[in-house]
Design a protein around this nucleic acid. Structure first.
Lengths: 121, 121
DNA sequence: CAGCGTGTCAACCAGATGGTTGAGTAAAAC
DNA sequence: GTTTTACTCAACCATCTGGTTGACACGCTG
């Protein structure tokens, strides 16, 4: 397949951790763009955007389709879906856990905030 | 509130982009741990784990509760939930879009793979 | 063919990241 | 009161990151 060298969650989350890259995904979800089109909104060099695209591509979030000199970029949803489902596994817990946690914290509230605070914000 | 200085998606995704930190969350989702307990599985110094915990805390994924000398860590689900919902917005698209995309790609398949390949893997 | 537009690659830089060690602090145990 | 335990903080280091610039490759257009 040689899909992408590492369809890893680490790469995916790292790709998502940059606002520029998330914005790019936001553009691509509407319709495919070529790289040049992506540059305008960002006040950043073409090369910088190209690098971001490469990061997204490595993470498997974006797919290139070469059309003449243009490089048309498509959103590739598998990676997003992977990340979504990874988080979904936690969702199973957090609804029920929040209740448990709240109960627990309520119990231990009296002794919850000890004094040992030197420089903790 | 002073919840955390930046309940930002960037921080959250960045926190999730490290396998050690994801593993820590995996331990915390079962039950709260103190930091010392987290160290064992990782072959890494206590301080390294402590730093990871701090990263998770900054991202709002983890909450500290001081119990004597121990620092009990709870999973804090809001951040995970935020990330989950951000991705969920894309899920609305990708189910329908995949169909559209596939149709589109099927149309343009004949000219989809041009020759311009010098050093592209 | 020459020139332009689109994009890649490599080199470079400042700052962030992930790890280490060592010193210090505070509560608990002796 | 001394020692242990659990943890924090600061300094340090190598590597990664996100940006830049400049040179180059490819395909389209005239």
């Amino acid at each position: 397949m040689v899909e992408n060298r590492k369809s890893d969650l680490s790469e995916i989350f790292h790709a998502l951790s940059d606002p520029t890259r998330r914005a790019i995904l936001g553009m691509l979800v509407r319709r495919p763009h070529h790289i040049g089109e992506l540059v305008a909104p960002f006040d950043m060099s073409f090369n910088a955007i190209s690098k971001h695209v490469k990061t997204l591509e490595r993470a498997g979030l974006v797919e290139r389709e070469l059309v003449g000199t243009f490089c048309k970029l498509h959103l590739k949803t598998k990676g997003l879906s992977d990340a979504y489902h990874w988080l979904g596994a936690y969702e199973l817990f957090w609804n029920e856990r929040l209740n448990k946690l709240e109960a627990l914290l309520a119990e231990s509230k009296p002794s919850t905030k000890p004094k040992r605070q030197k420089s903790r914000s």
